[in-house]
Amino acid sequence: MKSLQILILEDNIDDAQTIINLLSKQYAVTLVNTLKKAKAIFVTSKFDLAIVDINVDGKLNGIEFAKHIQNAAKPIPFLFLTSMQSKTVFEQAKLTQPFTYLLKPFNHLELQYTIELAVEKFFQQENTLRTNKTLISDYYILVKKQHLICKINFDDIEYVEVEENYCTLHVSNNKYVVKKSLSKIKEILGKENFEQTHRKFLINFNKVKSINLSENTIYLNSGFQIAISERYKKHLTSRFNIIK
């Protein structure tokens, strides 16, 4: 499991401290206090979300940075912070889409809600995270575990166990339950790396250590043992031939 990488642009120390207090336990937070630094670090590091104060250094630098994110090669979700709900301030900010903002002061629930809203709007999958549903991007899945947004890269998934309409994603030592059917999750993960071995199992091929066909068992790098059913065996071996 990887925690979300969050970039915060905020020049007011007290406000910055408040946000860090609310977020740093769960997420990897990076704080910068000028537009210049923000732009620099945005190039060198990868982030999943940006929280931007509109007013930085007495100018609307936050909006400037939001535009920068929006026009970047790989844009990320962002949300605005402001202490004033005034139209004149937002006139420019509204031009950056999708537009999400949070009024200061706020508590952790309000921040959580707004972060989820911003991410949903960015991926155009509204009403997912806020109602504990899964949000799916091209390379990873966002799921909520308690109040924490977890990011699961497809590559990190060892195997998927299916139970009725729920799937359990096994990622190293963590499990994430996702309310998706097997066919859906197969579609999401794609055929390139994932293969069904059993009515109940989907494995990530890159995580396979060895296969024992006589025992009908797959050994994963992490030590898991997954059963192979006769029904999927042939298809599985044919795939191996291709890999050879």
């Binding site: 005034s86 509204k94 809600y113 009403n127």
Partner: peptide, 15 residues
């Protein structure tokens, strides 16, 4: 008439 007003769909219970 300077208040920003952007209505959206929200979960009122969460708010």
């Amino acid at each position: 008439n300077q208040l920003l007003f952007i209505p959206e769909n929200h979960f009122i219970n969460l708010l």
